[in-house]
Every structure is written in C-alpha cells, then in structure tokens.
Design a protein around this nucleic acid. Structure first.
Length: 805
RNA sequence: GCCGAAGUGGCGGAAUUGGUAGACGCCCGGGACUUAAAAUCCCGUGUUCAGCAAUGGACGUGCGGGUUCGAUUCCCGCCUUCGGCACCA
C-alpha cells in the first residue's frame, strides 16, 4: 500500500476532532504543563511557513509532554483588534468584525490542517465582548489604583493612521513609511514606571534567552546617579542637574538645559534673549527624528547666565541645547567635556574649556577619555578630596558630601516612560470611563461596554475616534448627572496582556479566572514566539501580571517561566519573506503538496529552532523520502498488505541503535533540539530498513518516537500495527541505559596529535591493552619506527596518542 | 559608537568539561531494477598532490598569534555578518 498523506491526514484530523482527543484534562492529580504560542493577529494574507515554525515546535512539546504523563494545556486564540481590519473597513465599509471572522476561520483551518493539538474548546478572541469585558475590568482596577491617569502629553501622532502611537511603536511605523510627529493631546497613560524596579529585578529569575532579558533591562534603563543643585548667579535660584558621574564634578565646565526646560528662556540675559528665543522655537519645530536621529551635529546657544560649581566655586556658563532631553532626569546636565563624548563634542564646537579630572592616557584636548577604571585627579577643595579613589568610592564620597551640604541627592532614574494607552480608533476595546459635565470621571458600572455600530470608520481630523460621532452611544445620564463616554479605545497590546490567563478558564462569566485553576495552571511553562516581541508585548504583559498579582487575581509574580524565540524563516532567496519581494511560501501551498507531517518535520529539520534560516523547497523532498521509509517499515510493498511484525530478537547492534536513538530523541526533544532528534530518527530508520528489520518493538518504538513530530502518519501506522487507541495515549518509549551505548568502540590512534589509524575494541578495554594494540596498528607502526615514545595519552573508549621524538 | 549572537564542504547544518571534523539531509555523479519512466535500492561526493590502481601524503572549521601530546572547542588581537539600542548625561 502506498503512503497517501492527504487522505490519512484528513482522516485523523476528523477523528481527533470527533473524539476530543486534545481536550485538556480536568483532573489536577497529574503534573501540569502549560505550553503557549504567541497568538496571532488574523491577517488577511494568511499564514506562511514562517508562522508555522513556532507553532510546530510548541505542538511537538505539547504532544511529547502528554506522552510523558503530563496534563497539558495547549490553547490557541486570536489577537483580533488592530489596524489592518479597520483600515480595510475605511476602504470598503466592511465591518471589521466580518473581516476578522473570515480571517480567523481561514487561520483556524490552516492550523487544523497542520494537525496541531490545540484544545479548541479553550479558544479566545480579544474582540469578543465576553473576553474584553475582563480587559476593561483590568483597566478599571488600574484606574482605581491610580495606575491609569489622563495627562496632556506630547504624543507620537501618526498622520496617516490618525492615531497616537506608543513610544515603542514609533520606529516600526516610520519604517513602514508612516509619518509620526509630536503633538500635545490629552491621553490615557498607564503608570508602568511605578513597576520599573520590579520589572527589572524579577527578570533575573526567568528562564529566558539572555538577549531578551538584556533588551528589557536596557529598555527599563535603570541608572544610579545624583541630582546636584547649581546656584544660579544673579537669579537667586538653583539649577538642578542629574548626573551618573558625580566623581567628575570638579571637571564640569558648563551646564546645558533642554530647550523645553522651564528656566530655559528665563536664563537668557538681555543680550542673548533674541537668540535664545529663536533657538527654542527652532527646536520645537524639529521632528523627533531630527532631534534624536542619525544627524548628531550639535547645536546650542549661550544664555548669558552663570551657575556656581558647588565643588570648585567657579562660575559655569549655562547653555541651551536640544541634545539634552527634557523627559529624562531633570532636563538639565552638567557637562564634563574631558570625560563624556557628547560634552566633548559640544565643548569643541563652542570652544568651551576641557578639564582633566580622571587620569587619562592622552591629552583630553585631543580626545575624550570616558574610562571608569581610571581614578580622579585635580579633584580637591578645602573640604574634600577624591583624588586617587576608585570609581565607586569616589562616587560615594562625592554624593555624601553633596548631600551633607544640602546641594545633592542620590537618585535613581529610568529610561522607561509611562505607557500612552489610548488610541483614536474604532476597532479596539472602549475605555470604560464616563466624563461628567463638572469634569469628574466615573467608571462604567456595567461591563462589557461594547462598541456601537458606526457608519464611517474614518477617524476625525481633530484626533477623536469615530465613536465621537455616535451620539446615542456617546451621551447618557445617571444619578451623578449627564456624561459623555470616553471615545478613545485601548491599543492592540491590551488584549494580549493577559490572554494566557483566560485560556485557563475561558468561559467564566463571574470572574476573570477561577483561583483554583489559576493556582494549578500558572505559570506558563513554555512560551514560544518571535523575538520581535522582546520588549513590547512581553514587558506590558509582565506589568499587567504584576498588577494582577497585587490584586490577588494571580498567585505568581511572573507570567512566563520559560521563553523561547524561534528564529525567522527566510525566503529561498535568503531574504525576509515579504509580499513585495514575492518570496513568501504560503502555508496552504506546501501543505497541499507535501502534507502536514512533512511540513512539520521539515520546518524542524532546517536547523536549530532559535536560528534564522532560509527555506529551501528542495530540502523537503528528503523529509518526504524519510516518511516513505517509515511507511515501508510497515507496508514494504507498493501493492499488497502490511508486513507481519515479528517478535524475534534483534541483532545486538540494532538493539543498541534503537536504545541510543530513544535516548537521543528524548533528550533532544526535551531541549527543543528538534533538528538533531530528527536526524537521529533517520539514522535508526535507515538501519532498520537496511537490515530488513520487522521487529515489533523496534518498529513500534520508532512510531512512538516520531508521533509528536508527525502525528498523522504515526496514528495510521499505529493502527496498522494492530492497535485500536490513539498514539496520543501511548507513553513515550523508554530506553535501557546499558543498551544506549556501543559495545564495540572505535579507537583513534594518533602520533603527535595526528590521526594515523584506528581499531575496534570492546568498550571498557583497559588502557595498557589499548596502548599495546595501538602500537601494532600497521598504519601507525611506520610513524613510530625509529622514534622514541615520550608519552602515551589514553582517553578510554576513544583515543590513544603517542607523543614521539 | 555601545550591547548581544554567530562565522564549519556546492547548500542547510552536526560534533565543544579540548580527543577520529563534516552526523543527517539537499544538490551532483555512477550503478541496479524497468520496454521506458517515476518510485525505490546500492556506491561515491572537503581541497589538493603522487599513482594505471589498491592506496598514500599534505592542507582544511573567518584571519593572525598563543597555550597543549592534541584546538571548530580555551586565551589574546583583528575582520565580516545578523539582531537590538542609539545624544537617557
């Protein structure tokens, strides 16, 4: 009988669905394993082979863990709010709900055609009111805790999309060709900064790729420093700066404030006022890109004012420059040009003095020296000296002295900013807040607050969402008076901040999640997804999770214990897959040609899961051949029936091969090294085939090893070998440690480290016997002839090396 | 510029408490089966030199050094690619 993947795959997918094979167990007796994919945005262009990589990996783990006795939760859902459906609605008038439903259906079909063992009874959809009721519920808790507030902020406004973007989204949109400008708007903001310290500290415990943890650390950007007050001459006021290098205070030769600094204009003396005003208004007009982007030519203007260096008593000129950011620290800095490259550059351009206060290997007038490993010089006054102290000691001495004098204060700063949370769009969760005429805000009493139907999806020019035009929905009154609803909606990140919790208890109408279930299932044991979410989604979700922890909704401080980033799959041209390049390999196409089992195996066989690697359609042929060989272990003839499996004992070498393979596949699967696990199975199948082996244990073990990887063909063959149940219910094969090693080993014989011959010997042959045999290997003898053996190095069961002279 | 990861045959990749480099697969070449083809099976396949051949030698894991009996693996100095951050004081 021939291997007809198409019929077999359809057959088993139907059986699984009918029998509810992958329903999550209700019992809490078994150990649990929660394996989660980053759920997709169901786009109109469908899934390509790259999307399937992570899903295949998680599915192999899900099936593997089931066969190892775990109660497995492996769910799938849809992150379905978002711009593309809304943009499509603007163009065509089709309600985003319709578009979304269609896309979800198509995505679900593809995922089912891949044979993924999701428990579809747990499916969630962020646009479903039953789901977003709880997204809104969380928002209200944030509001009550003071973690959600309204603020007039300079937002990132996207002209084309008519909406505000999160800081984290800006670069991505600019890269996509959108225009982003700064614009002041009243916005909802989430106080993620209140959790900065915990978000940073708790990273240490997580089993995440080191680079992702590092990226989050950088993004949070904690720094320890000192705020120092500089007395302004002729102003009677102080100018406060933030520095992480108080040890260089003696070398400060000028100060710089940001153009947005409240004192900026006030600092200008009569002579300089005109120029200062001009500079400030020019800075305002610059876009974010011009100010922080690639062009780093320093500009600035002198205010005419001076401030006193508290360490030296010297007057320092105060400048204004847009390289100083108002949003970080105090919006003002002390400049130490000798030991900071930006300050050095600025000093050179405007001819300001450069003073060496850290012992430098070269003249600081020629080049900056930023090293922290050197020590302070020229840093003494009548009260204090830090000369010669190591960085940490110098920092502390200086900070304490400043604090004692009342002109300084140790401070911790973060790069992390609060999260601008509102979007002026239709297709998102409505923010459940009512604005009363007297300016007070109250929370909606009844959730979910659903979206009304609208005629036009186009946002208004004023920066309000289309919801502002639906008067029936917008206005109302209650015992507190008449109110207007909030018309902003939440960003797409909102729904994905907590979906992993809802999978545990998706139908609960009374609470977000049942506490007992939560305790059993959390944390997520393995979370697989793309590295593009290293900061955004993963930081937001961790933030919300910690809030929910503080609310006693969840029992763990972190949501995702282990994270794994699959590497991107490139097109056959070695470029990122994209429509414009025309190198996209659509999932449905390869599924049809090669079948789900072959696609699953091939995606995993391409190379290490975490690595970026190109797709090569030729390569999948090898996998198809492999599946054919597996098939012929049971059905050796194209025509005719299956072979009888025998219970005869296997040759010892084959038996050892089997146990070695079981061990390797078990270990590699556990470690997500699927490429080498598959290679090992190929070795076993080649051996069985070459030997015409029909041993029942061998063939059945092989089927069970392969089952997590290629579920359809293995179900079929399991049935063909006389079993009635599903392979899903079978335990993963065990190996016997004593059989998982070779009984006869090859010994390499080297002379001076060069390979000169080999011989076979039983494992465990004693050293002197190895040396004796090695010495008499013919190809070795001629290299020993006439030489003196200085040393014999033996690695048992591996190698003998003669060091000769 | 800073941080992180990686450089191995024609290609994807394997092997690192230092121990036979190139598992497995693709491509390519030869053969068997077949009227023929497909499918399948068998053999070969890092480079180079010597030889009719069996075979044997040299070289070979980005580059240059070092440690070692022995280095893809460890150390020092470079180069390149990819990912991230980018005036955060």
């Amino acid at each position: 009988m021939r291997y007809e993947f198409s019929a077999i795959e359809k057959k088993w997918q139907a059986i699984w669905q009918e029998n509810g094979t992958f329903r999550t167990g209700e019992s809490t007796e078994k150990p649990k394993y929660y394996v989660l994919d980053m759920f997709p945005y169901p786009s109109g262009s469908g899934l390509h082979v790259g999307h399937l990589e992570g899903y295949t990996a998680s599915d192999i783990i899900a099936r593997f863990k089931r066969s190892r006795g775990f109660n497995v939760l492996h769910p799938m859902g849809w992150d379905a709010f978002g711009l593309p459906a809304e943009q499509y609605a603007i163009k065509t008038g089709t309600h985003p709900k319709i578009t979304t439903e269609n896309n979800i259906r198509s995505f679900r079909e593809t995922l089912q055609a891949m044979g993924f063992s999701y428990d579809w009874s747990k499916e969630v959809n962020t646009t479903d009111p039953v789901y977003f009721k709880w997204t809104q519920w969380i928002f209200l808790r944030l509001y009550e805790m003071g973690l959600a507030y309204m603020s007039d902020v300079d937002v990132n406004w996207c002209e084309e999309l008519k909406t505000v973007l999160a800081n984290e989204e800006v670069d991505e949109k600019i890269a996509d060709g959108y225009t982003v400008v700064r614009k002041p708007l009243r916005q909802w903001v989430l106080k993620i900064t209140a959790y900065a310290e915990r978000l940073l500290a708790d990273l240490d415990e997580l089993e995440w790729p080191e680079n992702v943890k590092q990226m989050q650390r950088n993004w949070i950007g904690r720094s320890e420093g000192v705020e120092i007050d500089f007395e302004l001459r002729c102003h009677g006021k102080n100018l406060r700066v933030y520095t992480t290098r108080p040890d260089t205070l003696f070398g400060a030769t000028y100060l710089v404030v940001s153009p947005e600094h409240p004192l900026a204009e006030k600092l200008a003396t009569a002579d300089n006022l005109k120029e200062v005003k001009a500079y400030i208004s020019r800075a305002k007009l610059k876009t974010e890109l011009e100010r922080t982007g690639l062009q780093k030519d320093k500009t600035g203007v002198f205010t005419g004012s001076y401030a006193i260096n508290p360490a030296t008593g010297n007057p320092l000129p105060v400048w204004i420059s847009d390289f100083v950011l108002i949003s970080y620290g105090t919006g003002a800095i002390m400049s130490v040009p000798a030991h900071d490259s930006r300050d050095w550059e600025f000093a050179k351009k405007f001819n300001l003095p450069i003073l060496e206060v850290i012992k430098s290997p070269h003249d600081v007038n020629d080049a900056v020296f930023e090293g922290k490993e050197s020590v302070p010089v020229n840093s003494s006054n009548s009260e204090i000296t830090i000369d010669g102290l190591a960085f940490r000691k110098a920092f502390d001495t200086m900070a304490s002295w400043l604090e004692k004098k009342g002109v300084g204060k140790r401070t911790i700063n973060y790069k992390l900013r609060d999260w601008i949370f509102s979007r002026q769009r239709y297709w998102g969760e409505p923010i459940p807040i009512k604005h009363y005429e007297d300016g007070t805000l109250r929370t909606e009493t009844s959730l979910p607050l659903t979206l009304p139907d609208v005629e036009a999806y186009q946002p208004s020019e004023t920066g309000e969402s289309p919801l502002a035009t639906i008067h029936d929905w917008l206005y109302g009154s209650d015992e507190f008076g008449s109110f207007r609803r909030e018309t902003n909606t939440m960003p797409q990140w909102a729904g994905s901040c907590w979906y992993y919790l809802r999978f545990i208890d998706p139908e609960n109408s009374g609470r977000l999640i049942d506490p007992e279930r939560e305790k059993y299932w959390m944390n997520v044991d393995l979370y697989i997804g793309g590295a593009e979410h290293a900061v955004l989604h993963l930081l937001y979700a961790r933030f919300w999770h910690k809030v929910l922890f503080d609310l006693n909704v969840v029992s763990t401080v972190e949501p995702f214990r282990k994270l794994f980033n699959q590497g991107m799959i490139l097109g056959e041209d070695n470029e990122k897959m994209s429509k414009s390049r025309g190198n996209v390999i659509p999932a449905d196409h390869v599924l049809k040609t090669y079948g789900a089992d072959a696609v699953r195996l091939y995606e995993m066989f391409l190379g290490p899961l975490e690595q970026v690697k190109p797709w090569n359609t030729n390569g999948i042929e090898g996998i198809s051949r492999f599946l054919g060989k597996v098939w012929r272990l049971v059905y050796p003839e194209q025509e005719g029936n299956k072979a009888e499996l025998t219970d005869e004992t296997m040759p010892e070498e084959l038996l050892r091969r089997l146990h070695k393979t079981i061990r390797k596949v078990t270990e590699d699967t556990e470690a997500l090294k699927f490429n080498t696990a598959i290679a090992e199975m190929m070795v076993l199948v080649n051996e069985l085939q070459r030997n015409g082996c029909r041993n029942r244990t061998a063939v059945e073990s092989m089927i069970l090893l392969l089952a997590p990887y290629a579920p359809h063909i293995t179900e079929e063959l399991w049935q063909a070998t006389g079993h009635t149940g599903s392979v899903t219910d079978e335990p993963f094969p065990d190996y016997v440690a004593g059989l998982a090693t070779d009984s006869v080993v090859q010994i390499a014989v080297q002379v001076n480290g060069k390979l000169r011959g080999t011989f076979s010997t039983p494992a465990g042959t004693p050293q002197n016997s190895l040396i004796e045999t090695a010495r008499n290997v013919e190809s070795v003898m001629k290299f020993l002839e006439g030489k003196t053996i200085m040393r014999e190095i033996v690695v048992p069961d591996k190698l003998v090396n003669f060091a000769v002279k």
